[in-house]
Amino acid sequence: MARETGVWLYAITPEFDASRLPAVNGVGGAAVRVVEAEGLSAVVASVDLAEFGEEPLRRNFEDPTWLEATARAHDGVIDAVSRLGPTVPVRLATVYHDDDRVRALLEDRYDDFWAALRFVTGRTEWGVKVYADPRAFAESAWSTEASAEGGGSGPGTTYLHLRRAQLSAQQAAEDTVAAHAKDIHAALDRIAVTARLYAPQHPALPEEPGRMILNGAYLVDDGCTDEFASRVDSLAAEHRGVKLELTGPWPAYSFAGAEEEARP
């Protein structure tokens, strides 16, 4: 029986010389190629439907090892392509029956794709993750409050005083941490063209101190890259007890929705 194949879509770009296509392999190790229509290029690769068809995908998605390899391959192709010029990344696991269907897509969504491409042209996505340990803020607040509340009463009352001080210190610490996150985001957002916030990620290991308090993606004009990076550094210096991590350059994953427009 002939092997059934599908066409896995990675990214949409303005038409470009396919010989410039980087030598990267896509998901499942397949070589990447280009399908063209209407002045647009779709970066694609053929995939075996036994692995990347609907049912196999559903199953494979639950296998972290498979998912990691596939996610990294998908990202690897898009990352390489995005270094050639404006690129609109396509979500993981977008598969077509054949090249004709991809050409039809380029024709049907012509306006959307061009709008999305214009929006990301000359801009790069950067990620900033901010970490803080609320307990560190709570402990300092708690020890001051606890000593201020002072003794003179029975052990029960003292316990309640301490407990109340501890709880209000925890709340205060959470507020402090949230304020740090808000300030940092606002400062970076001012330099960026636009920003998107992701849910903070879970700590890697429970016993690790600190947790993520901000997980932002920022679309930055390429002319402002240095300004943005040095602002990340200066924010780290301004906010004590808080750690900033800059990631990127990313393909404009977080800003590729065709509905996105520059903000007013």
Partner: peptide, 17 residues
């Protein structure tokens, strides 16, 4: 993962997840 699953332009492929 958060970028390639949640974001990226939304296109409905022939093979639907």
């Amino acid at each position: 993962l958060e970028r390639i699953l949640d974001k990226g332009i939304v296109i409905t492929g022939d093979i639907r997840i």
